[in-house]
Design a protein around this nucleic acid. Structure first.
Lengths: 158, 158
DNA sequence: TCTATATAAATCGTATACGATATAATCGTG
DNA sequence: CACGATTATATCGTATACGATTTATATAGA
């Protein structure tokens, strides 16, 4: 005989039973901050912030994207991206040009120095692997699980 | 005979070989944003932002903490916490009082309505579990792995 | 005791995030 | 072709984050 309102602790999941240290949201929040801190000294040499770096990675993968296309990759809107991309422009790493075919769109293109910057990131992956303190296989598995979680969360939020 | 400078792809780890979608940093970054989005409608009913909620969780666990003690839990400094806690104060959820023994310290205490707010978060854990799309066991495992990763990253950054 | 140092918060400047709105260009349908 | 609806980006206001500095207080050593 099962009771959906059972007091059996194994059947209940109440927020107050969980310490902050075991909140999934807090672990994500603080791990993201920690990753930010590991990247900071690496990125300071390039003169980039963390979100600016992610936008550059998106452009190194495929140059000449629209603002909205970069936003789709990074899950960001123009209200965040426009100022960020203007800063990358003033740093001389990208150009922002309205499309001739559709004047609503702004196409972002890497400059020479923007392209060159990529070379200086070659060893970032091994720096992060070392800082993560886990094996490459474990890191890949964790990354995939976190990405799957993100996709589920986005689906639920929509 | 192994060569540490081998060109064998299995031995190399270069940033440019990895698509943005497989960056651990990006998965953390975007999963954190996604979690934020899931929480937003839940928190709007309480009138709290996501970081404000985390500070409240820390206080529900132990009331009367100092600014610095909350910061140690959340990995935040007073430059972020002071304005946040002032907002919680103006919302009527906490009081901020300088300690009599040591006037440098500011002690944060929950008000009645701040304590009552906790009850309205009881079902958050099951909401997040449902939104995560994974089993409770898997969620706990993932949380622990992410927390361990965070600790390793913080150690490396220090 | 007096002062140099250390500590806890707060302040300031810059850069994300994001909801809401504005602006401009394009599209769809009559 | 006209014109309302849609789309792409930008702007604005508020709230984090965080490096650097400031302020106020406490402590330690000469």
């Amino acid at each position: 005989m099962t009771d959906t309102h059972s007091k059996d602790p194994a059947q209940r999941l109440e927020t107050s039973d969980i310490p902050l240290s075991q909140f999934l949201c807090f672990s994500l929040y603080s791990a993201n901050h920690a990753m930010h801190r590991v990247y900071k000294p690496l990125l300071q040499k390039l003169g980039l912030t963390y979100p600016q770096y992610l936008a550059m990675v998106a452009l190194w993968e495929q140059d000449g994207r629209l603002v909205g296309e970069i936003g789709a990759r990074l899950h960001l809107e123009s209200n965040t991206l426009t100022p960020l991309l203007k800063r990358l422009e003033s740093l001389g790493f990208v150009t922002r040009v309205r499309d001739d075919k559709d004047e609503r769109q702004v196409r972002i293109r890497l400059t020479g120095s923007g392209k060159e910057l990529k070379r200086e990131t070659t060893d970032f992956a091994s720096c992060i692997l070392a800082a993560s303190g886990i094996s490459l296989d474990e890191l890949r598995d964790l990354q995939a699980r976190i990405a799957a979680l993100r996709d589920n969360l986005l689906q639920a939020a929509a």
